[in-house]
Amino acid sequence: MQAFEYANPTSLKEALGMLSSQWGEADILAGGTDLLSLMKEYIHTPKRVINIKGIKELGGITKTAAGLRIGATATLDELTESAAVRTEYPSLHQAAMGVSSPQIRNMGTVGGDLCQRPRCWYFRQGYGILGQEKGKSLVPDGENRYHAIFPKSQAYFVNASSLAPALIALGAKVKIAGPNGNRELRVEELFVVPSSNAARELALAPNEILTEIVVPSARGVKNATYEVRQKEALDWPLVTASVAIRMKGSSVASAKVVLGHVGPTPVVATAAEQMLTGKSLTQDVATEAGKSALDGAQPLNGNAYKVQLARVAVKRALLEAAKARG
């Protein structure tokens, strides 16, 4: 990797002062599990690396009556070890356990999981976020077995976050600090379709830091995540489905169904959510919801198999949620 200046700030203010208003000048280091690989491949060549793990206020997981506050530098291991997460937010616990390497869970952070760059191999080989050569994407006629089945304009990569679908289904927000103060985004607003091959896929400015994630209380919300991986061991998901269901008696009052790893941003399956309302969570209803969720999928020549995987993931997440208390 290219040599860089290293900084170890202990306050958020100090860290913000070290960032640049231009992409590519400085990078934020938390767990490092993605950043170091990007730097070794010369995809990122920052002049300065800012370690934010020394900033105490960015760490920790706290449960209050209003919900859950997760510091950006809390590790995935801290998330899976949290009793509050396991009982009230099983979908988050399951999503974090899907990162099936203890080493990555010990190192990787919750903020880093959301901010990690896509795994698209064209991007990782230096063809830019849209995987373009001479202004044309290499993906549709190339090796696209892990790419989007819900592409958006010229974006065929898939969002890499394991936690985003669960956080979106649970109605979570992220807090962001910048030079002009703080702002909040719903997690689904954090992810954007890049406008050009050099643009970013996150709604963050280069001089902003994602500081924490706030998840509202999930009492009375049945929630679950179902992930399909090629390997049982460490791998990114092929597809993920996260659901959060409010019941009224034995029927669904409202449902959130979110798919991960099928598009450049997580996909909220509105049709499935509407179809589920008023129904009981039976095997047939869950199967039907899986079909609805994949209506409109536009698979590429090498990834039609992901459509069926995603249908089944939705069905299994719903049946898992049906078993959960809440």
Partner: peptide
């Protein structure tokens, strides 16, 4: 050397880590 294979595994403060992916 990319935090995937585990051949570089060490233990830091009681937690297993990939030492290739820590500065």
């Amino acid at each position: 050397d990319r935090g995937t294979c585990g051949a570089c595994t060490m233990i830091a403060n009681g937690k297993v880590i990939y030492s290739c992916t820590v500065l």
